[in-house]
Design a binder for these strands. Structure first.
Lengths: 237, 237
DNA sequence: GAGGCCCGGTGACCCACATCACAAGCACCC
DNA sequence: GGGTGCTTGTGATGTGGGTCACCGGGCCTC
Protein backbone atom coordinates (compact mmCIF):
# COMPACT_ATOMS: atom_id res chain seq x y z
CA UNK A 1 0.00 0.00 0.00
CA UNK A 2 1.65 3.20 -1.17
CA UNK A 3 0.52 6.74 -1.74
CA UNK A 4 -0.09 7.84 -5.33
CA UNK A 5 3.35 9.42 -5.89
CA UNK A 6 5.70 6.78 -4.61
CA UNK A 7 6.11 7.83 -1.00
CA UNK A 8 4.16 7.55 2.22
CA UNK A 9 2.27 10.61 3.34
CA UNK A 10 3.26 11.74 6.81
CA UNK A 11 -0.01 12.87 8.34
CA UNK A 12 1.10 13.61 11.86
CA UNK A 13 3.52 16.48 12.37
CA UNK A 14 4.34 15.35 15.90
CA UNK A 15 6.03 12.17 14.78
CA UNK A 16 7.29 13.47 11.45
CA UNK A 17 10.85 12.45 10.57
CA UNK A 18 11.20 14.66 7.51
CA UNK A 19 11.73 17.70 9.66
CA UNK A 20 15.08 19.06 10.74
CA UNK A 21 16.11 22.16 12.66
CA UNK A 22 15.98 24.51 9.74
CA UNK A 23 12.38 23.62 8.97
CA UNK A 24 9.75 26.21 9.74
CA UNK A 25 7.78 23.55 11.59
CA UNK A 26 10.67 22.84 13.93
CA UNK A 27 8.67 24.27 16.82
CA UNK A 28 8.13 23.64 20.51
CA UNK A 29 5.53 21.03 21.36
CA UNK A 30 2.51 23.21 22.04
CA UNK A 31 2.99 25.26 18.88
CA UNK A 32 3.55 22.13 16.85
CA UNK A 33 0.35 20.59 18.15
CA UNK A 34 -1.55 23.69 17.19
CA UNK A 35 0.03 23.63 13.75
CA UNK A 36 -0.83 19.98 13.32
CA UNK A 37 -4.49 20.69 14.03
CA UNK A 38 -4.79 23.49 11.47
CA UNK A 39 -3.01 21.96 8.55
CA UNK A 40 -4.30 20.00 5.58
CA UNK A 41 -1.79 17.48 4.31
CA UNK A 42 -1.71 16.59 0.64
CA UNK A 43 0.63 15.24 -1.97
CA UNK A 44 0.95 16.61 -5.47
CA UNK A 45 2.38 15.29 -8.73
CA UNK A 46 5.15 17.10 -10.59
CA UNK A 47 3.90 20.15 -12.43
CA UNK A 48 1.07 21.01 -10.06
CA UNK A 49 0.42 24.72 -9.63
CA UNK A 50 -0.10 25.69 -6.00
CA UNK A 51 -0.85 29.34 -6.59
CA UNK A 52 -0.49 31.90 -9.31
CA UNK A 53 0.74 35.48 -9.09
CA UNK A 54 -2.10 37.91 -8.73
CA UNK A 55 -4.38 35.60 -6.75
CA UNK A 56 -5.63 36.72 -3.38
CA UNK A 57 -3.73 34.85 -0.66
CA UNK A 58 -5.59 31.75 0.53
CA UNK A 59 -2.87 30.73 2.95
CA UNK A 60 0.54 29.15 3.24
CA UNK A 61 2.01 25.90 2.00
CA UNK A 62 4.59 24.22 4.17
CA UNK A 63 6.85 22.16 1.92
CA UNK A 64 7.62 18.82 3.60
CA UNK A 65 9.12 16.90 0.71
CA UNK A 66 10.04 17.67 -2.89
CA UNK A 67 11.07 20.81 -4.79
CA UNK A 68 8.86 23.68 -5.82
CA UNK A 69 9.67 26.18 -8.54
CA UNK A 70 8.88 29.79 -7.65
CA UNK A 71 8.61 32.06 -10.65
CA UNK A 72 7.15 35.23 -12.05
CA UNK A 73 6.03 35.89 -15.59
CA UNK A 74 5.89 39.07 -17.65
CA UNK A 75 2.99 40.15 -19.81
CA UNK A 76 4.82 38.87 -22.89
CA UNK A 77 5.16 35.41 -21.40
CA UNK A 78 8.81 35.64 -20.44
CA UNK A 79 9.41 33.74 -17.21
CA UNK A 80 11.92 34.38 -14.45
CA UNK A 81 12.59 31.74 -11.82
CA UNK A 82 13.10 33.25 -8.40
CA UNK A 83 14.18 30.16 -6.59
CA UNK A 84 13.75 26.43 -6.23
CA UNK A 85 12.21 25.95 -2.80
CA UNK A 86 13.60 23.13 -0.68
CA UNK A 87 11.84 21.06 1.99
CA UNK A 88 11.33 23.06 5.16
CA UNK A 89 10.38 26.27 3.42
CA UNK A 90 7.03 27.97 3.64
CA UNK A 91 5.49 29.10 0.36
CA UNK A 92 3.24 32.09 0.04
CA UNK A 93 4.05 33.51 3.44
CA UNK A 94 4.65 37.10 2.24
CA UNK A 95 1.28 37.35 0.63
CA UNK A 96 -0.43 35.62 3.52
CA UNK A 97 1.15 37.82 6.15
CA UNK A 98 0.80 41.10 4.31
CA UNK A 99 -2.62 40.33 2.85
CA UNK A 100 -1.62 41.39 -0.67
CA UNK A 101 -1.93 39.11 -3.69
CA UNK A 102 0.62 36.36 -4.25
CA UNK A 103 3.29 38.08 -6.28
CA UNK A 104 4.87 34.87 -7.48
CA UNK A 105 3.75 31.55 -8.94
CA UNK A 106 4.51 28.22 -7.25
CA UNK A 107 4.69 25.02 -9.25
CA UNK A 108 5.89 21.63 -8.04
CA UNK A 109 8.94 20.39 -9.90
CA UNK A 110 8.54 16.82 -8.70
CA UNK A 111 6.10 14.85 -6.52
CA UNK A 112 5.72 16.79 -3.28
CA UNK A 113 4.12 16.62 0.12
CA UNK A 114 2.73 19.90 1.37
CA UNK A 115 0.80 21.13 4.36
CA UNK A 116 -1.69 23.85 3.63
CA UNK A 117 -2.85 26.28 6.31
CA UNK A 118 -5.65 28.77 5.78
CA UNK A 119 -4.73 32.43 6.06
CA UNK A 120 -6.88 33.29 9.05
CA UNK A 121 -5.77 30.20 10.91
CA UNK A 122 -2.17 30.99 10.18
CA UNK A 123 -2.40 34.59 11.34
CA UNK A 124 -4.11 33.51 14.54
CA UNK A 125 -1.45 30.91 15.03
CA UNK A 126 1.34 33.47 14.68
CA UNK A 127 -0.36 35.80 17.11
CA UNK A 128 -0.76 33.08 19.73
CA UNK A 129 2.65 31.48 19.39
CA UNK A 130 5.55 33.85 19.71
CA UNK A 131 8.10 31.18 18.84
CA UNK A 132 6.37 30.48 15.59
CA UNK A 133 6.10 34.15 14.80
CA UNK A 134 9.82 34.65 15.34
CA UNK A 135 10.49 31.63 13.18
CA UNK A 136 8.27 33.12 10.51
CA UNK A 137 10.22 36.35 10.67
CA UNK A 138 13.44 34.41 10.30
CA UNK A 139 12.15 32.61 7.24
CA UNK A 140 10.99 35.87 5.72
CA UNK A 141 14.42 37.33 6.39
CA UNK A 142 16.01 34.46 4.52
CA UNK A 143 13.68 34.99 1.60
CA UNK A 144 14.64 38.64 1.51
CA UNK A 145 18.27 37.73 1.54
CA UNK A 146 17.98 35.33 -1.34
CA UNK A 147 15.98 37.93 -3.22
CA UNK A 148 18.73 40.49 -2.63
CA UNK A 149 21.25 37.95 -3.84
CA UNK A 150 19.37 37.58 -7.05
CA UNK A 151 19.04 41.34 -7.47
CA UNK A 152 22.81 41.61 -7.13
CA UNK A 153 23.28 38.89 -9.68
CA UNK A 154 20.88 40.46 -12.16
CA UNK A 155 21.82 44.06 -11.63
CA UNK A 156 25.52 44.09 -10.96
CA UNK A 157 27.00 41.54 -13.33
CA UNK A 158 27.79 42.52 -16.88
CA UNK A 159 27.79 39.18 -18.57
CA UNK A 160 25.88 35.96 -18.80
CA UNK A 161 28.97 33.81 -18.13
CA UNK A 162 29.45 35.69 -14.88
CA UNK A 163 25.89 35.03 -13.74
CA UNK A 164 26.06 31.40 -14.72
CA UNK A 165 29.35 30.99 -12.89
CA UNK A 166 27.77 32.50 -9.79
CA UNK A 167 24.87 30.09 -10.03
CA UNK A 168 27.12 27.05 -10.40
CA UNK A 169 29.12 28.13 -7.38
CA UNK A 170 25.95 28.63 -5.40
CA UNK A 171 24.79 25.12 -6.25
CA UNK A 172 28.04 23.51 -5.31
CA UNK A 173 28.51 25.58 -2.18
CA UNK A 174 26.33 23.06 -0.35
CA UNK A 175 28.86 20.27 -0.84
CA UNK A 176 31.78 22.15 0.63
CA UNK A 177 35.36 20.94 0.51
CA UNK A 178 35.31 18.54 -2.38
CA UNK A 179 37.91 18.61 -5.12
CA UNK A 180 35.41 18.18 -7.90
CA UNK A 181 31.99 18.90 -6.47
CA UNK A 182 29.13 17.11 -8.16
CA UNK A 183 25.52 18.15 -7.82
CA UNK A 184 22.36 16.51 -9.01
CA UNK A 185 19.84 18.87 -10.46
CA UNK A 186 17.03 18.36 -12.88
CA UNK A 187 16.83 21.61 -14.78
CA UNK A 188 16.73 22.22 -18.49
CA UNK A 189 18.89 24.87 -20.12
CA UNK A 190 15.70 26.83 -20.57
CA UNK A 191 15.10 26.86 -16.83
CA UNK A 192 18.67 27.81 -16.04
CA UNK A 193 18.27 30.68 -18.48
CA UNK A 194 15.16 31.78 -16.63
CA UNK A 195 17.05 31.83 -13.36
CA UNK A 196 19.91 34.01 -14.54
CA UNK A 197 17.77 36.11 -16.83
CA UNK A 198 19.20 35.23 -20.20
CA UNK A 199 18.20 33.16 -23.22
CA UNK A 200 18.28 29.42 -23.63
CA UNK A 201 20.79 29.62 -26.46
CA UNK A 202 23.20 31.66 -24.38
CA UNK A 203 23.12 29.07 -21.60
CA UNK A 204 23.87 26.33 -24.10
CA UNK A 205 26.75 28.31 -25.56
CA UNK A 206 28.27 29.25 -22.23
CA UNK A 207 28.00 25.70 -20.94
CA UNK A 208 29.69 24.47 -24.11
CA UNK A 209 32.44 26.98 -23.51
CA UNK A 210 32.83 25.90 -19.87
CA UNK A 211 33.05 22.29 -21.02
CA UNK A 212 35.67 23.09 -23.63
CA UNK A 213 37.75 25.00 -21.11
CA UNK A 214 37.45 22.19 -18.56
CA UNK A 215 35.76 24.48 -16.04
CA UNK A 216 32.48 22.67 -15.47
CA UNK A 217 30.52 19.90 -17.13
CA UNK A 218 26.79 19.42 -17.07
CA UNK A 219 25.99 15.94 -18.28
CA UNK A 220 22.44 14.73 -17.92
CA UNK A 221 21.36 16.04 -14.58
CA UNK A 222 24.81 15.86 -12.99
CA UNK A 223 26.91 18.97 -12.67
CA UNK A 224 30.63 18.56 -12.09
CA UNK A 225 32.80 21.54 -11.33
CA UNK A 226 36.30 20.87 -12.63
CA UNK A 227 37.93 24.18 -11.87
CA UNK A 228 36.39 26.18 -9.12
CA UNK A 229 39.13 28.79 -9.18
CA UNK A 230 38.26 29.92 -12.70
CA UNK A 231 34.58 30.18 -11.79
CA UNK A 232 35.46 32.33 -8.82
CA UNK A 233 37.59 34.55 -11.00
CA UNK A 234 34.65 34.95 -13.35
CA UNK A 235 32.23 36.15 -10.69
CA UNK A 236 34.29 38.66 -8.78
CA UNK A 237 36.96 40.80 -10.33
CA UNK B 1 17.19 76.32 20.31
CA UNK B 2 17.21 73.83 17.45
CA UNK B 3 18.84 70.49 16.86
CA UNK B 4 21.89 70.37 14.58
CA UNK B 5 20.04 69.44 11.37
CA UNK B 6 17.17 71.86 11.32
CA UNK B 7 14.49 69.89 13.09
CA UNK B 8 13.58 69.03 16.65
CA UNK B 9 14.50 65.58 17.85
CA UNK B 10 11.52 63.62 19.13
CA UNK B 11 12.90 61.73 22.08
CA UNK B 12 9.75 60.17 23.44
CA UNK B 13 8.01 57.59 21.28
CA UNK B 14 4.84 57.76 23.35
CA UNK B 15 4.05 61.31 22.33
CA UNK B 16 5.65 61.18 18.89
CA UNK B 17 3.62 62.80 16.13
CA UNK B 18 5.76 61.62 13.23
CA UNK B 19 4.23 58.17 13.43
CA UNK B 20 1.27 56.98 11.41
CA UNK B 21 -0.43 53.59 11.09
CA UNK B 22 1.99 52.17 8.60
CA UNK B 23 4.97 52.81 10.85
CA UNK B 24 6.58 49.81 12.44
CA UNK B 25 6.38 51.58 15.79
CA UNK B 26 2.62 51.95 15.52
CA UNK B 27 2.19 49.54 18.40
CA UNK B 28 -0.08 49.02 21.40
CA UNK B 29 0.86 50.96 24.52
CA UNK B 30 2.79 48.32 26.45
CA UNK B 31 4.88 47.33 23.44
CA UNK B 32 5.53 50.95 22.60
CA UNK B 33 6.71 51.65 26.12
CA UNK B 34 9.09 48.75 25.94
CA UNK B 35 10.35 49.98 22.58
CA UNK B 36 10.85 53.46 23.94
CA UNK B 37 13.00 52.15 26.75
CA UNK B 38 15.33 50.17 24.48
CA UNK B 39 15.94 52.66 21.72
CA UNK B 40 18.68 55.20 21.23
CA UNK B 41 17.49 58.27 19.37
CA UNK B 42 19.90 60.14 17.16
CA UNK B 43 19.91 62.45 14.18
CA UNK B 44 22.29 62.16 11.27
CA UNK B 45 23.40 64.52 8.51
CA UNK B 46 22.94 63.66 4.84
CA UNK B 47 25.47 61.12 3.62
CA UNK B 48 25.91 59.30 6.92
CA UNK B 49 26.51 55.56 6.59
CA UNK B 50 24.46 53.55 9.07
CA UNK B 51 25.84 50.14 8.18
CA UNK B 52 27.77 48.52 5.38
CA UNK B 53 27.17 45.22 3.68
CA UNK B 54 29.23 42.47 5.20
CA UNK B 55 29.19 43.83 8.74
CA UNK B 56 27.87 41.66 11.54
CA UNK B 57 24.40 42.91 12.52
CA UNK B 58 24.51 45.28 15.48
CA UNK B 59 20.78 45.90 15.49
CA UNK B 60 17.98 47.73 13.74
CA UNK B 61 17.41 51.35 12.82
CA UNK B 62 13.89 52.64 12.94
CA UNK B 63 13.61 55.51 10.46
CA UNK B 64 11.49 58.31 11.96
CA UNK B 65 12.23 61.16 9.57
CA UNK B 66 14.19 61.53 6.34
CA UNK B 67 15.15 59.22 3.49
CA UNK B 68 17.76 56.50 3.52
CA UNK B 69 19.37 54.97 0.46
CA UNK B 70 19.74 51.19 0.56
CA UNK B 71 22.28 49.86 -1.88
CA UNK B 72 24.67 47.07 -2.69
CA UNK B 73 28.00 47.31 -4.45
CA UNK B 74 29.92 44.88 -6.61
CA UNK B 75 33.59 44.11 -6.34
CA UNK B 76 34.29 46.44 -9.28
CA UNK B 77 32.59 49.33 -7.52
CA UNK B 78 29.37 49.31 -9.49
CA UNK B 79 26.46 50.24 -7.24
CA UNK B 80 22.85 49.14 -7.35
CA UNK B 81 20.23 50.99 -5.33
CA UNK B 82 17.67 48.63 -3.85
CA UNK B 83 15.29 51.20 -2.53
CA UNK B 84 14.92 54.58 -0.92
CA UNK B 85 13.55 53.88 2.54
CA UNK B 86 10.76 56.14 3.77
CA UNK B 87 9.90 57.16 7.33
CA UNK B 88 8.29 54.29 9.22
CA UNK B 89 10.56 51.60 7.82
CA UNK B 90 12.96 49.51 9.82
CA UNK B 91 16.46 49.19 8.40
CA UNK B 92 18.65 46.16 8.91
CA UNK B 93 15.87 43.94 10.18
CA UNK B 94 16.71 40.94 7.96
CA UNK B 95 20.26 40.76 9.17
CA UNK B 96 19.26 41.38 12.77
CA UNK B 97 16.56 38.73 12.78
CA UNK B 98 18.49 36.08 10.89
CA UNK B 99 21.83 36.81 12.50
CA UNK B 100 23.69 36.93 9.19
CA UNK B 101 25.75 39.92 8.07
CA UNK B 102 24.00 42.99 6.70
CA UNK B 103 23.73 42.26 3.00
CA UNK B 104 23.07 45.84 2.03
CA UNK B 105 24.47 49.27 2.78
CA UNK B 106 22.36 52.04 4.32
CA UNK B 107 23.25 55.68 3.79
CA UNK B 108 21.17 58.70 4.72
CA UNK B 109 20.15 60.79 1.73
CA UNK B 110 19.19 63.81 3.81
CA UNK B 111 19.18 64.77 7.48
CA UNK B 112 17.41 61.97 9.35
CA UNK B 113 16.14 60.99 12.73
CA UNK B 114 16.65 57.33 13.59
CA UNK B 115 16.07 55.09 16.57
CA UNK B 116 18.66 52.41 17.04
CA UNK B 117 17.90 49.20 18.94
CA UNK B 118 20.56 46.64 19.82
CA UNK B 119 20.13 43.21 18.33
CA UNK B 120 19.68 41.27 21.56
CA UNK B 121 17.23 43.83 22.88
CA UNK B 122 15.28 43.71 19.67
CA UNK B 123 15.06 39.92 19.59
CA UNK B 124 13.91 39.86 23.19
CA UNK B 125 11.37 42.50 22.41
CA UNK B 126 9.96 40.51 19.51
CA UNK B 127 9.74 37.40 21.64
CA UNK B 128 7.88 39.20 24.41
CA UNK B 129 5.51 41.23 22.27
CA UNK B 130 3.51 39.22 19.80
CA UNK B 131 2.00 42.29 18.20
CA UNK B 132 5.41 43.70 17.45
CA UNK B 133 6.59 40.38 16.08
CA UNK B 134 3.65 40.19 13.71
CA UNK B 135 4.31 43.74 12.67
CA UNK B 136 7.92 42.83 12.03
CA UNK B 137 6.81 39.93 9.87
CA UNK B 138 4.57 42.27 7.93
CA UNK B 139 7.39 44.68 7.31
CA UNK B 140 9.67 41.88 6.20
CA UNK B 141 6.95 40.70 3.84
CA UNK B 142 6.77 44.14 2.31
CA UNK B 143 10.52 44.20 1.86
CA UNK B 144 10.33 40.86 0.10
CA UNK B 145 7.65 42.15 -2.15
CA UNK B 146 9.54 45.22 -3.18
CA UNK B 147 12.59 43.05 -3.77
CA UNK B 148 10.54 40.77 -6.01
CA UNK B 149 9.27 43.83 -7.84
CA UNK B 150 12.80 44.88 -8.55
CA UNK B 151 13.76 41.39 -9.67
CA UNK B 152 10.89 41.48 -12.13
CA UNK B 153 11.99 44.86 -13.37
CA UNK B 154 15.60 43.80 -13.80
CA UNK B 155 14.99 40.33 -15.13
CA UNK B 156 11.91 40.57 -17.27
CA UNK B 157 12.18 43.85 -19.13
CA UNK B 158 14.16 44.10 -22.31
CA UNK B 159 14.92 47.77 -22.48
CA UNK B 160 16.09 50.67 -20.39
CA UNK B 161 13.17 52.92 -21.41
CA UNK B 162 10.81 50.23 -20.15
CA UNK B 163 12.48 50.08 -16.75
CA UNK B 164 12.61 53.84 -16.45
CA UNK B 165 8.95 54.10 -17.38
CA UNK B 166 8.11 51.58 -14.69
CA UNK B 167 10.08 53.56 -12.14
CA UNK B 168 8.37 56.83 -13.02
CA UNK B 169 4.97 55.19 -12.73
CA UNK B 170 5.93 53.74 -9.38
CA UNK B 171 6.94 57.16 -8.11
CA UNK B 172 3.78 58.83 -9.26
CA UNK B 173 1.51 56.01 -8.12
CA UNK B 174 1.49 57.60 -4.67
CA UNK B 175 -0.28 60.72 -5.90
CA UNK B 176 -3.15 58.89 -7.53
CA UNK B 177 -5.79 60.58 -9.65
CA UNK B 178 -4.01 63.67 -10.85
CA UNK B 179 -3.95 64.69 -14.46
CA UNK B 180 -0.29 65.61 -14.44
CA UNK B 181 1.26 64.06 -11.36
CA UNK B 182 4.26 65.87 -9.96
CA UNK B 183 6.70 64.32 -7.56
CA UNK B 184 9.60 65.82 -5.69
CA UNK B 185 12.65 63.68 -5.61
CA UNK B 186 16.28 64.53 -5.15
CA UNK B 187 18.08 61.97 -7.22
CA UNK B 188 20.78 62.44 -9.79
CA UNK B 189 20.69 60.68 -13.14
CA UNK B 190 23.50 58.55 -11.82
CA UNK B 191 21.36 57.35 -8.94
CA UNK B 192 18.38 56.66 -11.17
CA UNK B 193 20.68 54.61 -13.34
CA UNK B 194 21.74 52.63 -10.30
CA UNK B 195 18.14 51.87 -9.46
CA UNK B 196 17.17 50.51 -12.85
CA UNK B 197 20.54 48.92 -13.52
CA UNK B 198 21.73 50.91 -16.49
CA UNK B 199 24.30 53.60 -17.19
CA UNK B 200 24.09 57.29 -16.38
CA UNK B 201 24.28 58.29 -20.03
CA UNK B 202 21.37 56.07 -20.94
CA UNK B 203 19.20 57.70 -18.27
CA UNK B 204 20.07 61.14 -19.60
CA UNK B 205 19.25 60.09 -23.15
CA UNK B 206 15.99 58.37 -22.29
CA UNK B 207 14.87 61.33 -20.18
CA UNK B 208 15.71 63.67 -23.05
CA UNK B 209 13.63 61.45 -25.31
CA UNK B 210 10.72 61.45 -22.85
CA UNK B 211 10.92 65.22 -22.66
CA UNK B 212 10.95 65.60 -26.44
CA UNK B 213 7.95 63.29 -26.81
CA UNK B 214 6.07 65.17 -24.06
CA UNK B 215 5.83 62.05 -21.92
CA UNK B 216 7.55 63.17 -18.76
CA UNK B 217 9.77 66.03 -17.68
CA UNK B 218 12.34 65.98 -14.91
CA UNK B 219 13.34 69.53 -14.13
CA UNK B 220 15.49 70.11 -11.12
CA UNK B 221 14.09 67.76 -8.53
CA UNK B 222 10.53 67.90 -9.81
CA UNK B 223 9.17 65.14 -11.97
CA UNK B 224 6.07 65.84 -14.02
CA UNK B 225 4.32 63.07 -15.91
CA UNK B 226 2.65 64.51 -18.97
CA UNK B 227 1.34 61.39 -20.59
CA UNK B 228 0.76 58.47 -18.30
CA UNK B 229 -0.83 56.36 -21.00
CA UNK B 230 2.35 56.22 -23.06
CA UNK B 231 4.37 55.22 -20.01
CA UNK B 232 1.94 52.44 -19.30
CA UNK B 233 2.19 51.24 -22.86
CA UNK B 234 5.96 51.17 -22.51
CA UNK B 235 5.99 48.94 -19.44
CA UNK B 236 3.54 46.22 -20.39
CA UNK B 237 3.22 44.99 -23.93
C1' DG C 1 8.75 1.80 -37.62
C1' DA C 2 6.71 6.37 -38.25
C1' DG C 3 5.40 10.62 -36.46
C1' DG C 4 5.34 14.11 -32.49
C1' DC C 5 7.43 16.61 -29.12
C1' DC C 6 10.87 18.52 -26.32
C1' DC C 7 15.62 19.35 -25.48
C1' DG C 8 20.32 20.56 -26.84
C1' DG C 9 23.54 22.50 -30.20
C1' DT C 10 25.09 25.98 -33.63
C1' DG C 11 25.41 29.63 -37.27
C1' DA C 12 24.04 34.42 -38.88
C1' DC C 13 22.33 38.86 -38.04
C1' DC C 14 21.74 43.10 -35.78
C1' DC C 15 20.61 46.42 -32.35
C1' DA C 16 20.43 48.34 -27.59
C1' DC C 17 23.39 49.90 -24.63
C1' DA C 18 27.96 50.17 -22.17
C1' DT C 19 31.92 52.67 -22.62
C1' DC C 20 34.95 56.45 -23.67
C1' DA C 21 35.63 61.17 -24.34
C1' DC C 22 34.69 65.77 -24.01
C1' DA C 23 31.98 70.08 -23.37
C1' DA C 24 28.81 72.88 -21.09
C1' DG C 25 26.03 74.30 -17.00
C1' DC C 26 25.82 75.22 -12.15
C1' DA C 27 27.14 75.72 -7.27
C1' DC C 28 30.10 76.77 -3.77
C1' DC C 29 34.11 78.85 -1.77
C1' DC C 30 38.38 80.75 -1.19
C1' DG D 1 37.01 86.78 -10.43
C1' DG D 2 38.51 82.06 -11.40
C1' DG D 3 39.41 77.71 -9.38
C1' DT D 4 37.39 72.94 -8.01
C1' DG D 5 33.81 69.80 -8.06
C1' DC D 6 29.66 68.06 -9.26
C1' DT D 7 25.89 67.11 -12.73
C1' DT D 8 23.92 67.02 -17.31
C1' DG D 9 24.16 66.58 -22.33
C1' DT D 10 25.80 64.39 -26.65
C1' DG D 11 28.65 62.17 -30.31
C1' DA D 12 31.46 58.06 -31.81
C1' DT D 13 32.44 53.29 -31.36
C1' DG D 14 32.32 48.39 -30.24
C1' DT D 15 30.10 44.33 -28.72
C1' DG D 16 27.41 41.08 -25.93
C1' DG D 17 23.84 38.55 -26.41
C1' DG D 18 18.83 38.39 -27.97
C1' DT D 19 16.42 36.56 -31.76
C1' DC D 20 15.51 33.73 -35.68
C1' DA D 21 16.23 29.68 -38.11
C1' DC D 22 17.42 25.11 -38.58
C1' DC D 23 19.10 20.43 -37.40
C1' DG D 24 19.94 16.24 -34.79
C1' DG D 25 18.93 13.19 -30.90
C1' DG D 26 16.28 11.05 -27.31
C1' DC D 27 11.86 9.48 -25.84
C1' DC D 28 7.04 8.48 -26.01
C1' DT D 29 2.86 6.98 -28.26
C1' DC D 30 0.26 5.01 -31.65
Amino acid sequence: MGSPYGFELVENCLICKLRNDSFFCSLPKTALEAFDKMKYTASYPAGAVLFVEGQAPRGIYMLCKGRVKLSTTSAEGKTLILKIAQPGEVLGMHATVSGTPYEITAETGQPCQLNFVKRDDFLNFLQKHGDACLKAAQHLSKDCQSAYQQIRSLGLSHSAPERLARLLLEWTSASPEQVEPRVKLALTHEEIAQIIGTSRETVTRVLADFRKRQIAVLKGSTLTVRNKAVLEKLVGA
